[in-house]
Simulated assay, not measured.
Amino acid sequence: MSDDARLADAALVLGDASPDSAVEVARTAADVDGLGTQLDATIEWAVQIANRVPLPGQGQTADRWSALATAAAMDVGAARVLEPHLDAVAILAEAEASGGLAQGALGSLHVDDHASWGVFAAEGPQRLEAHEDDAGRWLLHGTKSWCSLAARLSHALVTAWVSPTTRRLFAVSLRDETVRPLAGPWVARGLSAIVSAAVDFDDPPAVPVGEADWYLQRPGFHWGGMGVAAVWWGGVSPVAAALARAAARPDADQIAQMLHGEAAADLWATQVVLADAARRVDSGSADDMRTLTQRVRAIAAGSTERVLTLADHGLGPGPLTTDEDHARRMADLRIYVRQHHAERDLARLGRSVAAG
């Protein structure tokens, strides 16, 4: 098989999307030594590939999600680096297009073409606040939880409280001396190198991105959430492929074939749902984008968890204890898919549907 054919085979493509972005992700990822584990090299790759992945909501959303899925199929850790960087680039583009970020406004933060981005929007027990000083500069003060790769990245988009009930998004340099990423606690066995710990901010300058509450209300918030679902689908696809190989062995029994069949059905359903959602995003035909996102994430998370369990049952302890790539992928996905809050997110979906 030629190199081009192998790359095309490695790409995961949704529906009738163009394979170009997915193939480009596969091609460039294959050249990275230590993809997903050597973080500096992986971050550099994510920055370089970002301008070759289409923005969401502009007619090529399926291409974008195919690229994310392909990255996850190559390595889950690599996708965990790429996805927030792509999300940040899309958020900044959305803010500029809506007038919420003036062109050149990020110059004060020394943003250039080599900038690597995180998105820190989760809320924890501690609180990050933003305030304006006498000169009209915005400053961040407090602690932000769940800041993935803060010690490695150059910049981040961070939500901070501007009143007791209102949050706003800000861009900040993580290399400012007043920004102090913590080393932990981070004892995760999955995504072990992708440290997601707290960061202390002691009044670094920040640039507001959009108006108050814009981050959660913009359409792209939901597009990004479904992009993560595409990562789960791509990340678990090699696990299903391992079940397929087991089912094809001469000594395979009906149980092996049944487990493979269930995994194949789950992944097919997720693929179809993601392709349909991408079409709705691009056409603007979704009546309720929040509910669509909740449905897509529930389906993708559920199928991912089922395929992981099917692999445990069908493949046994062997690959979990002797196959580095398989064992790491299984552990990485179990952490990653916890961005879906299981029964609590399903309860939110139920409330949305019941409310009509």
Rank of each mutant, 00 (worst) to 15 (best):
T270E: 10
G190I: 00
G184H: 04
A90R: 12
L157P: 06
A347M: 11
G184Y: 05
L174G: 01
R189Y: 13
A11P: 02
E129Y: 14
V296T: 01
D3M: 09
I43F: 09
Q271A: 12
A347E: 11
E262K: 03
W146N: 06
S283T: 13
P219C: 01
T322V: 15
L333R: 14
G77E: 06
Q48I: 11
A73Q: 14
L267T: 11
K144N: 06
D75K: 09
V158F: 02
L292F: 01
T309C: 15
A95T: 04
A354L: 14
G124V: 08
T293H: 10
T304E: 14
S148L: 04
V187Q: 12
D200Y: 10
T143H: 03
D75R: 08
D4F: 12
L259E: 02
A212D: 02
H326F: 15
G210E: 03
W214S: 00
A311V: 04
G142N: 00
A269S: 11
A90L: 05
A263C: 03
V13T: 07
H131W: 10
G234F: 06
M1A: 12
V89Y: 12
A198T: 07
V209H: 07
P19S: 00
V47I: 10
P317M: 15
A212L: 02
M289Q: 06
S154C: 01
F221I: 05
R249Q: 07
R180C: 09
W45T: 06
G77P: 05
G99H: 09
R80F: 14
G190H: 00
L259N: 04
I255M: 10
R329K: 15
D87S: 15
M226P: 00
L346Y: 14
Q254L: 13
D176R: 00
A244Q: 14
L82C: 07
S283I: 02
L92W: 01
R280L: 04
S21L: 06
V272K: 09
L14F: 12
Y215K: 09
T61R: 11
S116F: 05
I43G: 05
A342Q: 13
G227Q: 02
S66V: 08
G77S: 08
A160L: 00
S173N: 08
R80L: 15
E94I: 12
S2Y: 11
H85T: 08
L320A: 12
T322I: 13
G142W: 02
D251L: 09
A278G: 01
L191V: 13
F120M: 12
Q217K: 02
G107T: 00
G210L: 07
L174W: 03
T293E: 07
W161A: 14
A105Y: 11
A115L: 05
P250Q: 09
A102G: 01
V281A: 02
G234A: 05
